[in-house]
Simulated scan of single mutants.
Amino acid sequence: MTTMVGYLRVSTEEQASSGLGLDAQRDTIQRYVDAQGWDVVWYVDEGLSAKSLARPQLQAALTRLRVIPKRRDVEGIVVAKLDRLSRSVHDFSGILKLASARKWAVVAIDLGVDTSTPTGKLVANVMMSVAEWEREVIGERTSAAMQAAKRAGRHMGRVSTLPRHTGELLMSLRTRHTLADTAGQLNAAGLTTATGKPWTGNAVAKAHRRLSAVGVATTS
């Protein structure tokens, strides 16, 4: 039988202690997996916001899913609502890409996203296309800002070797998250530093200073 990760999240301690938000999510997921004939294992983050992917139980679930298919004991992740998993288009797009690369399914019941089905894959691809379009638009702005900085004679350092969308995404994340959370989300999206290393809080701080120096705008 196919086994899926059922992921639950509530953002406040009050919701966590009452169990009401968790119970509703669990019920929705249970009915869905029962209809599909799937088994489910539960991962629960209590009192945590979706502004970051740096949540203990979510990261534990993603680690379990990253195992190569032949050794993996779960086949995907199911959430009752997309905002239980992520409130960021970029973060969700990164999860979808990871799922596609590792061949596991992502199911967001409220949106009809179920990448184990052809229709669900289509919906997910549309969402990723929108995210890619957004990154390209942001990249154009970043490139224009960097070219202007070059003409003004400003030194750009290693930031110039970052992919355009990585730099702009970093700036966007720093408007809402800590250095550590920003590093975690960049790593979760499969992005690296200019030297090809995983992001750390210190690396984010240095890149942020350099990008700010050349006038790369943040986005909300």
Rank of each mutant, 00 (worst) to 15 (best):
K97F: 07
E134V: 01
K150T: 07
G215Q: 09
L53W: 05
R55L: 02
T63K: 13
S86L: 02
S49M: 02
G19A: 06
R209I: 08
V216E: 05
G21R: 04
Q57E: 15
G47H: 07
E136P: 01
V44S: 14
R71N: 15
V123A: 13
V130C: 00
Y7M: 09
S88G: 03
L111P: 01
E140R: 14
E132P: 00
N187W: 08
D45L: 04
T63E: 15
G190D: 09
T182V: 02
A124V: 05
D27L: 12
L96P: 08
E46T: 07
Q36R: 15
Y7G: 07
I29F: 11
R31E: 13
G47R: 08
E134C: 01
V33Q: 09
I68S: 15
G21N: 02
T175H: 09
V5D: 12
V78W: 12
E140L: 13
W199F: 14
M127R: 08
G201E: 08
I109E: 08
G215M: 08
L191P: 01
V40D: 02
T119A: 13
E140W: 10
G153I: 05
R154T: 11
M146L: 13
P69W: 10
L191K: 09
P198S: 07
T175Q: 14
M171G: 00
A207V: 05
A207N: 13
F92P: 03
D181Q: 15
V106L: 11
V44N: 11
R66C: 06
R164T: 09
T63Q: 14
G167H: 03
